[in-house]
């Protein structure tokens, strides 16, 4: 299955970035092969709607799940509509660690936005 993670740099050993819409890189990982493709986060410099853009990216990649540190209300609604499951990093440090814990069922799934959104 495909998973999208917000990270600070390309590669499976990349340090995590807790910001979903504003993290520098979105890593698309195929959990069967551990192949990791890095893409620049589309909304990293957007004045608004960064979370929506990142969610659209994940949906476009046909990801089944995303892992990040935070999901605002817009990203949450968008990912929910697209049927993409959301998980939190917890104290994971790298993408590889997050995927291992995800596969072991150790990551917390998100059922509501984890922050109230950013404006201005």
């Amino acid at each position: 299955m495909k998973i999208v993670l917000s990270v600070t740099a390309p590669g499976i050993e990349a340090p995590i970035d807790p910001r979903f819409g504003r993290g520098a890189t979105l890593l698309v990982v195929d959990t069967d092969t551990m192949q990791a493709d890095a893409h620049p986060n589309p909304g990293v410099n957007a004045s608004g709607g960064a979370g929506v853009q990142a969610a659209q990216f994940a949906a476009g990649q046909k990801a089944e799940a995303v892992i990040s540190g935070d999901f605002g209300p817009n990203a949450f609604d968008a990912l929910k509509a697209a049927g993409v499951a959301m998980y939190l990093y917890g104290d994971c440090q790298t993408a590889r660690q997050a995927i291992e814990r995800f596969q072991a069922g150790q990551l917390q799934q998100v059922g509501a936005p984890t922050q109230s959104g950013h404006h201005g």
Partner: peptide
């Protein structure tokens, strides 16, 4: 321009 409308799968 403001990402106020998004198409996500069939929604």
């Amino acid at each position: 321009a403001y990402h106020a409308i998004a198409v996500l799968g069939q929604k």
